[in-house]
């Protein structure tokens, strides 16, 4: 099995497979996979239903290194059953998160404190539609286990979400990804709870037209989420860009990293509710109205601009209001 790390760095994050993403994020040759394809741990539920199975159950999880940091990487593969979380890959995800907590606790017990340049880091690349419906209960349990782990990681281990793949983070993964400390995305990233087709089916085409691509992207796309502050950093689409950002943040003290959080305290809940209040008060009918409210004038051009220009002109929601 060969992986050319140098070639991976220039590769598009969007086009790479889950395994390539995981290997490219950490230092060259340091990635060790948990339950890889050779372990052949396939989903027992899919076999019973006569659905195709995959040896890694649509997820690459493992540990690697960035400098002196142990980095726990979870990378979802959206092309296999929509990247959805089932029993096997859900357990892989939650146990990798648990391992990061155990790693932190073991370091703390042995050395008294965990130095900033050696602390463990969790990186999750989301590419999922949520719960795998074939094994729905197991998938929901897995989600709640992941949420519990992420709660425990808070203020201990930096937890970084990457939204840079074709599916983005939908369904239950939508709020799992925002429970992280930092959210990184490229222009292809999307975050949502309910997918466009389901919204249209449930509340009608007048409310949300699922065939209107521009509407979908300006409602759920990374640029809109960047303006609203759900996405902390908007990056170019290459594995190197994401890796460089993580490397740059890796030595920051935990108190600095926690400042990027979106959830996890009463003040942050108030801050999020405030956006909802603004949407009600200002009669917001479209994302563009909200962008205008936060001081953007050329709202029709914003989605079309090249990323560099977009980042220069865009005005974002101020934090802490």
């Amino acid at each position: 099995m060969r992986i050319n790390w140098n070639e991976l760095q220039e590769k598009s994050f969007y086009q790479a497979t889950a395994r390539e993403r995981a290997n490219g994020i950490v230092d060259d040759g340091t990635f060790k996979e948990f339950l890889g394809p050779r372990d052949k741990m396939v989903s027992p539920h899919l076999i019973i239903l006569g659905e195709a199975v995959e040896y890694d159950d649509g997820m690459t999880a493992g540990v690697g290194k960035i400098g002196k940091h142990p980095v726990f990487v979870i990378s979802q593969e959206g092309k296999f059953v929509g990247g959805a979380l089932g029993e096997v890959n859900g357990a892989k995800m939650s146990y990798t998160l648990k391992l990061a907590i155990d790693c932190y606790d073991a370091m703390k017990e042995k050395y008294g404190k965990v130095p900033d340049d050696r602390k463990p880091i969790v990186v999750v690349s989301y590419d999922s539609g949520g719960v795998r419906l074939h094994e729905a209960n197991a998938g929901l349990v897995a989600h709640s286990e992941c949420m519990e782990c992420m709660w425990k990681l808070q203020n201990k281990v930096p937890n970084i979400s990457i939204i840079g793949s074709s599916l983005g983070a939908y369904g239950a993964q939508g709020f799992v990804c925002l429970s992280a400390d930092v959210v990184l995305a490229n222009d292809y990233g999307r975050i949502g709870l309910t997918g466009p087709d389901v919204i249209q089916q449930e509340v009608g085409k007048d409310e949300f037209d699922a065939s209107d691509r521009a509407l979908i992207w300006r409602t759920m796309g990374a640029r809109s989420k960047y303006i609203l502050g759900d996405v902390n950093f908007l990056l170019k689409d290459s594995i190197k860009e994401f890796r460089d950002k993580i490397v740059a943040m890796s030595d920051l003290p935990m108190s600095e990293i926690s400042k990027y959080r979106h959830l996890g305290s009463e003040e942050l809940v108030e801050e999020n509710l405030n956006v909802v209040k603004i949407a009600g008060r200002e009669k917001i009918n479209d994302s563009k109205d909200l962008w205008k409210y936060y001081g953007n004038e050329n709202v029709d051009e914003l989605p079309e601009l090249p990323q560099e220009e977009f980042l220069k002109v865009v005005k974002r929601r101020p934090r802490g209001l």
Binding site: M1, R2, T17, A18, G36, P37, R38, A52, V53, E54, Y55, E77, K79, F80
Partner: peptide, 8 residues
């Protein structure tokens, strides 16, 4: 060993 492909 060697592994390629995704079951899409």
């Amino acid at each position: 060993w060697s592994h390629v492909g995704v079951v899409s």
